[in-house]
Nucleic acid binder design. Structure first.
Length: 573
RNA sequence: UGGGGCGUCGCCAAGCGGUAAGGCACCGGAUUUUGAUUCCGGCAUUCCCAGGUUCGAUCCCUGGCGCCCCAGCCA
C-alpha cells in the first residue's frame, strides 16, 4: 500500500480526462472572434509577477488561460511580468514555474519575460518621444500626484510637458545612461490631463531604478511600468486574447492607446472577476504577512491557499482543476464557499485514495473471551468500490484500540456505535459486545472498554443473520504503529476575513483551532511504509496525506486533507 | 459629486425577445461491514426596483437603488 497513489495525476491536463467545460462569456467572445475572422487562432498567456507564491486565485487564471488554449487548439505562454526588480526574486520565479507544472500545464517553448523585451520597449519609447507622444518630466513623485488631480477634478499639465522632442530624447538617453538618480525624472505618455479616466492623465512609462534585475542584471537603470510593458509584450508574442482581472478594466483604453500610437498588432484584453474564497485571504500582501509574522509555518503551510500549501496539504492538481472549472468565470464580485473546493478534493480522493484504519484518539479495548496468544489476519479492501485496488492483511488480537468517541456510556438516541451492553462490528473482524468499562479511580476517566466477541461473526457478519447497525474501526494494540497526525481546519473563523470594514483587524479572525497536532495515534502496521506525498482515506475520518517534509522513513506524519462528510455530526450529535 | 464595471435560488452560474440549464449547499428516501461512497426525488410562476416598448422581456428602452474598482515613479 506504500506507494500506490503518489499524487499520480500530475500530467498535462487533457480535455479527454476533464469534465466538459461549461461555457462562459470569454468563450462566447472567442467563438465570435473566430467566427468573424477577427482572430484565426487562440494564443493566451498567464503573466504572473514574480514577487510571491501562486495561490488558488492564480490557479483560476492558469486553468482559464491554459484551458482555453487547450480547448481551442492554440497555445498559452507563461510570461513573467518582471518590470519591477525592487520586488521580484528568482525564488519566486522557480516556485511559479513549479506550481504551474504541478497543476498540469505545459507552456512548451513559450516561457517569456517582459524583460526579454526591454530593448524593444526602449526603442518604442524613443519613437513615441520623437512623435511627440511622450516626454521626460522632472516633477517629483509628490508633485506628479498633486498635478494629477482627483476623481472629480481634472489634473494640471506639468511645466515640462511641452519640452521639444530633441530635448526629451536627450534627457531620456541620459536617464538610460545612468546620469540621474532614482526618482529624479520619469518618462510620461502625453495623453490627457483632464481625462475622467485617471490612467490617461499622462501615465508614467519609465522610472529610474538603479536596481539589479533577476534576468537583465545591471543592464538597465530604468524600468518600464506595467502599462507600458504589458500590452506591447502581448503584441510581440501574438497574444490574441489577453485575459486579466477586473481592476484592469480601466487600463484597457491605455493598453490600446500605446498599441495604436506605436501602430503595432493589438490583442484583445478581456477582464474577469478574481476569485474570493471564504474562510481564507487571497492578497499577496496578507499572505506574506501571515508568513512573516509566523501565523503559519511558511508559504507551504498546509493551511495556506497557496499552490504549494494546498499541494503539501494533499489537495490534488486534478481537484484544483475541477474546482476552477466548477466555479465558472464571470464579472460578478463573488465569494466561493470553501465547501466547493473541499468537495472537489473529496470527489477526487474518494476515487483514488486507498483506505486504511487508524485511531486518532485511542481507547483500549480488551476482548475478554479472545485467546491471549492468538493473532488473526483479516483481509481488508483497499477500496470498497474498486476491487482492482486489491486487499491487504490487517492483524487482530485480544487487545485493540478503538476511537474514543466511538464509545459512549450514555448514548443519545440515534447513536449506534458502542455503549454498555450494546453490540458493534469491528470492521472486517468480529462483532463485539460491551460488557464493562474501566475508569481511572481518581479522575473517573474511561481508560478501557471490556468486551466479548462473537466467534461466529468472523469477518463481521453474524451467523444468525442479525443486523448490526454500527461498524467502527480499530487497530491491534500490539501491532499498530504510533504516528503523528495534524488535523487542519479553516485558517479563519469568519467567512470573509478580508472584507471587514475595519480592515486592519483581519488577523483577529484567525481560527485558533486551525491546527491540532496529535502525537499518539495508532495506525495499522502497513502505514509505516506509506510514502511521502501519498494519500489515504482513514476510514470514517477523512483523507490524509503523508507529509512531504516531516515524515521519516518508517515514521510517517499525516496531514488531514479534508474530513469525510458526516451526517451524524451535522445532525448535531 | 468624474470615469469604469456588476446586480438570475443560501453560494457560484447558464441564458442574448418565446415563456428560468447545471454545480455546491439544503431537505427527503433507497442501498451500504466507512453515520462515507453510490442512487433516486424535492428545491427561483421568477431574474435589484419602478415605469415603458412588444402578442410576449431575465433578455430592448427610461429612471431609480445597491455593490465593486480607479487619484503607485506597484502589478
Amino acid at each position: 500500500m506504500a506507494n500506490q497513489n503518489d499524487n499520480k495525476d500530475n500530467g498535462q491536463a487533457r480535455a479527454a480526462t476533464e469534465p466538459s467545460q461549461p461555457t462562459n462569456f470569454i468563450r462566447n467572445i472567442i467563438d465570435e472572434d473566430l467566427k468573424t475572422g477577427s482572430r484565426q487562432t487562440i494564443v493566451t498567456r498567464f503573466p504572473p509577477e514574480p514577487n510571491g507564491y501562486l495561490h488558488i486565485g492564480h490557479a483560476k487564471s492558469i486553468c482559464l488561460n491554459f484551458g482555453l488554449a487547450r480547448d481551442y487548439g492554440g497555445r498559452c505562454h507563461l510570461r513573467f511580468d518582471d518590470t519591477n526588480p525592487a520586488k521580484e526574486d528568482m525564488e519566486y520565479i522557480d516556485s511559479i514555474k513549479d506550481s504551474v507544472r504541478w497543476l498540469g500545464f505545459d507552456w512548451g517553448d513559450h516561457l517569456h519575460n517582459a524583460s526579454d523585451y526591454f530593448g524593444q520597449l526602449y526603442e518604442w519609447a524613443e519613437e513615441l518621444i520623437i512623435k511627440g507622444k511622450a516626454y521626460v518630466d522632472d516633477l517629483a513623485a509628490e508633485q506628479i500626484r498633486e498635478y494629477r488631480g482627483t476623481l472629480t477634478e481634472p489634473g494640471k499639465e506639468s511645466p515640462f510637458r511641452n519640452r521639444p522632442p530633441e530635448e526629451n530624447l536627450d534627457l531620456f538617453r541620459r536617464m538610460r545612461a545612468g546620469e540621474f538618480p532614482d526618482g529624479s525624472r520619469v518618462l510620461r505618455a502625453k495623453i490627457d490631463m483632464s481625462s475622467p479616466n485617471m490612467n490617461l492623465r499622462d501615465p508614467v512609462m519609465y522610472r529610474i531604478l538603479h536596481a539589479s534585475h533577476p534576468h537583465t542584471g545591471d543592464d538597465w537603470c530604468l524600468y518600464p511600468m506595467y502599462d507600458y510593458a504589458h500590452g506591447q509584450s502581448d503584441s510581440i508574442e501574438g497574444i490574441t486574447h489577453s485575459i486579466c482581472t477586473l481592476e484592469f478594466e480601466d487600463h484597457r483604453p491605455l493598453y490600446e492607446w500605446f498599441l495604436d500610437a506605436l501602430g503595432i498588432y493589438a490583442p484583445r484584453q478581456i477582464e474577469f472577476a478574481r476569485l474570493n474564497l471564504t474562510y481564507t485571504v487571497m492578497s499577496k500582501r496578507k499572505l506574506l504577512e501571515l508568513v512573516r509574522e509566523g501565523y503559519v509555518n511558511g508559504w507551504d503551510d498546509p493551511r495556506m491557499p497557496t499552490i504549494v500549501g494546498m499541494r503539501r496539504r494533499g489537495y490534488t492538481a486534478r481537484a484544483i482543476r475541477t474546482f476552477c472549472e466548477r466555479i465558472g468565470v464571470g464579472k460578478n464580485d463573488s465569494w466561493i464557499e470553501m465547501g466547493v473546493l473541499e468537495d472537489c478534493v473529496r470527489e477526487d480522493l474518494n476515487e483514488c485514495a486507498p483506505r486504511a484504519m487508524a485511531v486518532l484518539n485511542p481507547l483500549r479495548m480488551v476482548i475478554e473471551n479472545y485467546p491471549e496468544d492468538l493473532v488473526e489476519e483479516f483481509d481488508a479492501l483497499n477500496h470498497p468500490n474498486d476491487p482492482s485496488m486489491g486487499t491487504r492483511k490487517v492483524p487482530f488480537a485480544r487487545e485493540i484500540y478503538i476511537e474514543a468517541e466511538d464509545f459512549l456510556e450514555e448514548p443519545p438516541k440515534g447513536f449506534f456505535r458502542l455503549a454498555p451492553g450494546r453490540e458493534v462490528r469491528l470492521r472486517y473482524a468480529y462483532i463485539v459486545k460491551c460488557t464493562g468499562v474501566v475508569k481511572d479511580e481518581k479522575t473517573g476517566e474511561i481508560v478501557e472498554i471490556r468486551c466479548t466477541y462473537d466467534p461466529e461473526s468472523r469477518g463481521g457478519s453474524a451467523a444468525d443473520g442479525r443486523k448490526i447497525k454500527g461498524t467502527i474501526h480499530w487497530v491491534s494494540a500490539a501491532h499498530g504503529i504510533n504516528a503523528r497526525v495534524r488535523l487542519y481546519d479553516r485558517l479563519f473563523s469568519v467567512p470573509q476575513p478580508g472584507s471587514d470594514k475595519n480592515g486592519a483587524d483581519w488577523k483577529s479572525c484567525l481560527n485558533p483551532e486551525s491546527l491540532k497536532a496529535l502525537d499518539h495515534c495508532r495506525m495499522e502496521p502497513g502505514l509505516a511504509l506509506a510514502s511521502p506525498g501519498s494519500c489515504f482515506q482513514l476510514e470514517r475520518q477523512g483523507y490524509f496525506s503523508v507529509d512531504i517534509k516531516d515524515s521519516l522513513p518508517g515514521s510517517p506524519v499525516f496531514n488531514r486533507v479534508v474530513t469525510l462528510r458526516d451526517s451524524w455530526a451535522k445532525a448535531g450529535a
